[in-house]
């Protein structure tokens, strides 16, 4: 339904009116077979542990989400009101699919699920996020995670 014609008109204007970054480089990194990869999720849904400060609009920060954090201890403070929350309310995997990744790891499709996952505030200007990207990659490498699923909303 996020085919453009299916997005409600007012929301469609907002979505298509966003300034979308383009990049001069085209990085492409290979890795071992999927069955040996350790997969981490980066969500741009501004997810954070319950009780911690919400993400503020436009912030370039990231929050770490330990894989052991229970689903009920994760809340969302994304700035946008133009996307569905009902699916997320029924099932956290609609946005943050750790249960599915665990199943894929158990069945050998992927090697393992990372110990730490990450969230950022979507719609933040990527030009402000270089340090955040470096911070995330530092943690990924420390945990030997070698595949990232980017899950936007």
């Amino acid at each position: 339904m996020a085919r453009i014609d299916d997005i409600p008109q007012g929301t469609r204007q907002a979505v298509l009116g966003l300034q979308i970054a383009s990049f001069d480089t085209e990085p492409f990194v290979s890795g071992p077979p999927l069955a040996r990869r350790r997969v981490a999720v980066i969500s741009s849904a501004a997810l954070h542990p319950r009780g911690s400060a919400p993400f503020l609009p436009g912030t370039a920060e990231m929050r770490m989400l330990p894989a052991t954090l229970p689903a009920g201890d994760i809340v969302m403070s994304h700035v946008s009101i133009n996307y569905d929350r009902a699916g997320w309310q029924r099932d956290i995997n609609t946005i943050y699919p750790l249960d599915r990744l665990r199943e894929l790891a158990a069945s050998g499709v992927i090697g393992s699920v990372a110990e730490t996952h990450y969230s950022v505030m979507g719609s933040t200007d990527p030009a402000t996020m270089q340090a955040t990207a470096e911070q995330i990659v530092g943690q990924l490498q420390q945990e030997r995670s070698d595949a990232v699923l980017l899950s936007p909303v």
């Binding site: 990194v29 990527p126 990659v137 990232v148 699923l149 899950s151």
Partner: peptide, 15 residues
């Protein structure tokens, strides 16, 4: 940005 720092990525895109 993550990929340019050396980690392979794949994105689910809605738009």
């Amino acid at each position: 940005m993550i990929e340019s720092l050396g980690v392979p990525t794949v994105v689910l895109g809605l738009v």
